[in-house]
Amino acid sequence: MSHHIVEAQDLHYTYPDGTRGLSGVSFRISHGESVALVGENGAGKSTLLLHLNGYLAATRGTVRIGDYPLTSKNLHAVRRAVGMVFQNSDDQLFMPTVFDDVAFGPLNLGLSEVEVELRVAQSLETVGAGHLRKRPPYKLSQGEKRSVAIATVLAMSPDILVMDEPTASLDPMSRSRLIELLKTFRHTKIIATHDLDMAADLCERTIVLHQGKVTADGPTIELFRDEGLLHRSSLEKPLRMQKCPVCSSRAD
């Protein structure tokens, strides 16, 4: 099953205004892997994610999604394979009702109405939002919006899930629920985040970006023990790996 592979080779990207986004990013993510993409603000995480579905085209270097090198010709196939969950769910939910929104992708794929209904029901069920199907998206809470946003992507049955800060602006309970949900997915996952605790929970592998370059790529727990590396990337150890401020004993 080679089509769940994501590979970047020497990606360079400079924004039209001259800001450097990426300067030589390479990695290979294989089938079923769950990878955290961490780095300080402006390290190039979002820029990198936008390359994975062909929204931005690299100034130099190539992206391969499964068997395809990403070109403008196979953009459709790639976007079908790569499901992207945006940081702000309001950007993702643009249809009048939750049902319409989840059905939007499958309908565009040309599926029959019966199949669309089925997919919508399944995806909403998966994220536990079946009861929201008739609601307008703007009336949902942040947590509900995030769940529905994920359902819209699941309904396309993508091979690869790309998420930008999935736990941002969620309350602790919604955050835990989301993590539990993501644990059940068998997709290849790429998650850009500052939430290192979530990264430790979900991702066995982490890629650290710093000023548009990969500064580390390896097992999550090992990287998170490297205080020097974290410090250089404006990150801090996940809370669970820090000393407990109350009893002062080390948790890990």
Binding site: L50, N53, Y55, H76, R79, R80, V82, G83, M84, F86, N88, D90, D91, Q92, F94, M95, D100, A103, F104, G105, L107, N108, L109, E113, V116, E117, T152, V153, M156
Partner: peptide, 21 residues
Amino acid sequence: RAERIYLAMRCRGFDGRIPMI
């Protein structure tokens, strides 16, 4: 925001038509 929404739409196969059941 418009740019981001358009991106989200393209990601889900938008081709100028809004399908609804």
